[in-house]
Structures are given as C-alpha cells and as structure tokens.
C-alpha cells in the first residue's frame, strides 16, 4: 500500500502525512507539484498548509499546478483521492468536489480538537467505519466555512455525499458543535462516485497516542483495506 503525498509550494502538513501514514504501517512518498505522473500510487493525499500562501483564495492557484491534470484523471478512474484542509480547498477549486470555502464565521483562525460524525461509509476513506461513529480530530483553519448553493446542498444530502459532520459528544450535529459556520455542520464531503473525499479536520495529526489521539488512523486504515479488497466505487461492500 503506497500513498502519494502531493507537495505544493506552501504545503506544511506533507511531512506530517507521510509520518502518520508510516506510523499506521503503510508506505508514503512525496510527489512534487511539478511532476506530471502519479502512476504507481494506491491513493493520493493532498495535504494541508498554505499552498501559494493562500493568495487570491485558498487553493485557487494550486489547482493549476502541473500535477493536477494527473490528479483529475486519477480521480476520474475511480481511484482514491483525499484532500485534507488546504488539500480539501484545492479539490473544491479544481471542481473535483462541489461547493466552496469561506472565511470562518467569527473570522478567526481556529486551532482546536473537534468531534465529527461519520455520515457515509461508502467512501474508501470511511469504509472501515460505521455510520454514526464519532471521531475526535484536530482542526486548524481560517477558511473552513463550507458553502454550497441550496440546490447543490440538497443534492449532496440526497446522494449521501456528506461524509463528516461536526457534532457534540453525543453525536448530535448541533449549532454549538459547529466551529466555523459550515452549512449543515459539514466537515467533509465526497464526489458523487465517493472516491474523492475532502475534509477540514486533520486525521494525520491523530494517528499516534503520544500526540493525543488515534482516531485519524481509521481514515488511512480504511482506504488501505479498501485498496486491498480491490473494491471499486459503485460496487457493494
């Protein structure tokens, strides 16, 4: 199981991702954003950070990096792609995921530990979880306020593309549990096929007990199991 972690200028969670993936027991290599091939990887990770300094809008410039054409093709083949934090923003800007990110309600950068509820287990990254499971994961962002127009939002909900929702300790997605103003408490979504997932929380920062939690392992373990099983999106199981 080999993960490819894409490094954009300004990525700063690339090493965290590689270390975490290795700690969970898999291989990970960096892919420089100027590379044009993503062949040989079982899963692509777009890590967090400040690609291009968040100039213009988070992710707006990174989506035109040379590697992104291959990422789009890889995603269209039904292979697993995950964007974490700034990586999520890049996938949104690239049009691989629906919606957009706005500045947090309250305008502050939020660095915290939150709970998210698993809403969908049909993505490679949540296939090892159960619906309703609550994970505790760190967040660290200024622009994590998920927005989609009303029609897109309704379609997302209908098609089960909401993957993670901010919730309280009981698993309820209350307004108080929503850190940034995201519509419907959305913390992560998938594309229609389910193989592309974006999430604002950082699973890679919760893979070792010494760092305060291990819930993030389930994201990486799920996709590894999914790849091992040879399951393709659109099939049951």
């Amino acid at each position: 199981m080999k993960f490819g972690v894409i490094v954009f200028p300004g990525s700063n969670c690339d090493r965290d991702c590689r270390n975490a993936i290795e700690a969970v027991g898999f291989d990970a290599e960096f892919i420089w954003h100027r590379d044009t091939s993503v062949a040989g990887y079982d899963c692509l990770v777009l890590p967090g950070g400040y690609s291009y300094g968040d100039y213009l809008r988070p992710g707006a410039i990174a989506r035109f990096s040379p590697v992104m054409d291959s990422v789009v093709e890889y995603a269209r083949d039904g292979r697993p792609v995950i964007g974490i934090c700034n990586g999520f923003q890049i996938l949104l800007e690239a049009g691989l995921l629906p919606g957009a990110m706005q500045r947090n309600v309250g305008t502050r950068f939020i660095c915290d530990r939150v709970r998210v509820r698993i809403e969908s287990t049909r993505t490679p990254f949540t296939s090892g979880c159960r619906e309703g499971d609550v994970l505790t994961l760190p967040i660290a962002h200024a622009d994590g306020n998920y927005y989609a127009d009303p029609q897109t939002l309704a379609e997302l909900e209908e098609r089960g593309q909401v993957v993670f929702r901010y919730c309280n300790e009981l698993g309820d997605a209350t307004p108080e549990a929503n850190p940034n103003g995201s519509l419907n408490n959305i913390a992560g979504v998938s594309n229609e096929a389910g193989n592309v997932v974006g999430m604002m929380p950082h699973p890679e920062r919760a893979c070792e007990a010494i760092l305060g939690g291990t819930d993030g392992r389930r994201i990486f373990e799920s996709v590894a199991e999914w790849v091992r099983g040879g399951v393709r999106v659109g099939q049951d199981g």
């Binding site: 707006a60 957009a100 989609a148 127009d149």
Partner: peptide, 8 residues
Amino acid sequence: QILANPTM
C-alpha cells in the same frame, strides 16, 4: 477560471 470562484 481563477480570479473569481463562480460558486460564491
């Protein structure tokens, strides 16, 4: 394409 995000 880039200067504005048509979603918002």
